[in-house]
């Protein structure tokens, strides 16, 4: 049971998988079974992903300045960047 797995659950059809926590298992199959018992005892999900924590590459919450900077300086990615006259419908 020595591998740490992160668990993601799709709450219902139409939603993304969301991280719910972690668990230990000795292989993928056991991780999936344990995840079912641990995180979906009350219909919390229709689909589960388990992934070894060591396979995840993550940024830190505090890295947002340099790491996410490229997403902040492209205002033209947002619909509000464009002026459309008020009398144009359905826009």
């Amino acid at each position: 049971m020595n591998d740490l797995y992160e668990v993601f659950v799709r709450g219902k059809r139409g939603l993304n998988h969301v991280h719910v926590g972690s668990l230990h298992a000795s292989d993928d199959e056991m991780a999936l079974r344990n995840a079912r018992d641990l995180y979906t005892r009350r219909n919390e999900g229709v689909s589960i992903w388990v992934v070894k924590a060591s396979h995840i590459t993550a940024s830190s919450p505090d890295e947002k300045d340099p790491f996410f900077a490229p997403s902040a300086d492209k205002v033209y990615r947002h619909p509000t960047f464009y002026d459309i006259p008020d009398d144009v419908p359905h826009m």
Partner: peptide
């Protein structure tokens, strides 16, 4: 030493790591 949960694998951008 153990792995930390919630994706501790380090990304290479700076940040304040121990």
């Amino acid at each position: 030493m153990t792995e930390r949960s919630e994706g501790i694998n380090k990304h290479s951008t700076s940040g304040h790591s121990s």
